[in-house]
Amino acid sequence: MAAAAAEELGLLECKVCFEPYGLSGRRRPRNLPCGHVLCLGCAAALGGAGRRGLECPFCRRAWGSAETSDCLPLLQLLEAAGPAGGLPAAVAAAGPAGGAPAGPALRLALGGWGALVNPTGVAACPRSGRLAVAHDGKKRIKVFGASGTCMQQFGERGDAGNDLKYPLDVAVTLDGHVVVTDGGDRSVKAFDFEGRGMLAVREGFCLPWGLDTTPENEVVVTDSEAGALYRLTADFGKGKLKESQMIQSKLTCPRGVAVCQVSGAIAVIEHLKAKGPNNSSTRMKIFSADMKLIAQMDTFGLNLIFPSKIYAVAVAFDKEGHIIVTDVYNQAVLCLGKPEEFPVFKPIINHGLSYPVGLTYMANNSLVVLDGGDHSVKIYSSA
């Protein structure tokens, strides 16, 4: 089953030459700084012949030829697969047979290269079921209907009134407003679903990154550079900010954040700096609704408990209050349990993803995963 899944996904082949990756030689998988992967032979060809640099064939960003690095997740996947192929052994072994419920089925896939360009955030409207996706295309926000049809696009750079320079994350409020963190001018901006700019908060932030809404229709924002967590209270319909309050400080490069709609608990993902290449790690912190620290654990600590290293990027709470994370190291979505039982290890999706960077739940409990590897939004029916 694992070998068939890997073959179906094409995880083990270069998306430029479509040759299978290898552990050595010209077929060895190499990372570009933008996150895309290709084999060493294609990287050499694209950056050779007197060219000054290497242009990513997927997102067209230019990099120096010396900026590529080994893609360790794929190399470990190759080692684990062996001659027969397969998924990371530790995660696959801890699938449904290891005690987790049967995984949800892929119901719909949206976007793809050309429709979405390096997507960074996804959010669902709790009432209408519409999905808002932030990406690096000409119009920075795309709104999809429940059936997958693109209903609206807005946020073109330089367009007065709804300008978005570099969106990092997106959330949708209970009253139907799209809130975006803009790393380009270090602001938080709110729009209606027609794309009209309603509010822009530019004061007080160093680098706003992740955001989510609270049960009271407030917005929680991480400031990655300041190491802080803010709560914004606003009348989005009237475009009036009522209060911007720092509710947590002394965090380390916080990015992903999620608010439990049941308990008000807040989960934050910190990105920890480490000496030496390939030593980066993440840490999860769980706070109660009144911002008391409930639990925390980093990649090293999780690795002592779980069968595989975990590098969490996005986080969400399901309807029952379980903490759900995307793990880019194993191309998986995992359940880490409720805050009071954190951490447990229950894989939800362990195949079909290449670089999961976003996560949300729809009103009908469908799980939505933003896959930066193939520039798509994947919607899974509930298990």
Rank of each mutant, 00 (worst) to 15 (best):
A4T: 05
A6I: 09
A6V: 11
C17P: 03
F18L: 02
P20V: 00
L23D: 04
L40D: 12
L40F: 09
G41T: 08
A43V: 14
G48T: 05
R51M: 05
C59N: 12
A62H: 13
A66S: 14
E67Q: 14
C71G: 00
L72T: 09
L74P: 10
Q76H: 11
E79S: 11
A80Q: 06
G86V: 11
V91Y: 04
A94Q: 14
G95F: 07
G99L: 04
A100T: 07
P101I: 12
A102F: 12
L106N: 11
L108S: 02
G112Y: 14
G114H: 14
L116W: 12
G121K: 09
V122P: 08
A124Y: 00
L131V: 06
A132K: 10
A132S: 11
G137P: 05
K138P: 05
K142N: 12
C150K: 08
R157W: 06
D163H: 15
L164Y: 10
L168G: 11
A171Y: 01
A171W: 00
D182Y: 06
D185T: 05
V188A: 06
K189H: 12
A190Y: 02
E194K: 09
A200M: 08
A200T: 14
C206W: 15
L207N: 11
W209F: 13
D212T: 06
D212F: 04
E216W: 07
E218C: 10
T222W: 02
E225C: 13
A226N: 04
A226H: 05
A226G: 07
G227E: 09
A228V: 03
A228R: 02
Y230M: 01
L241E: 07
K242W: 01
S244Q: 12
S249K: 13
T252S: 13
G256Y: 10
V257Y: 03
V257K: 04
C260P: 04
A265N: 15
I266N: 05
V268A: 02
I269H: 08
E270I: 07
E270A: 12
K273G: 13
A274T: 15
G276M: 00
N279C: 08
T282R: 10
T282C: 07
T282P: 03
M284K: 06
S288M: 06
S288Y: 05
D298R: 14
N303T: 15
L304E: 10
F306E: 04
S308C: 12
K309T: 03
V315Y: 01
A316R: 10
F317R: 02
D318Y: 14
K319R: 12
K319V: 11
G321Q: 11
I324N: 02
Y329D: 07
V333H: 00
K338H: 08
K338D: 03
P339M: 01
V344P: 00
V344F: 04
F345C: 07
K346F: 13
I349R: 05
H351E: 04
L353R: 00
S354D: 05
Y355I: 09
L359W: 00
A363M: 07
A363E: 12
S366L: 13
L367P: 10
V368K: 02
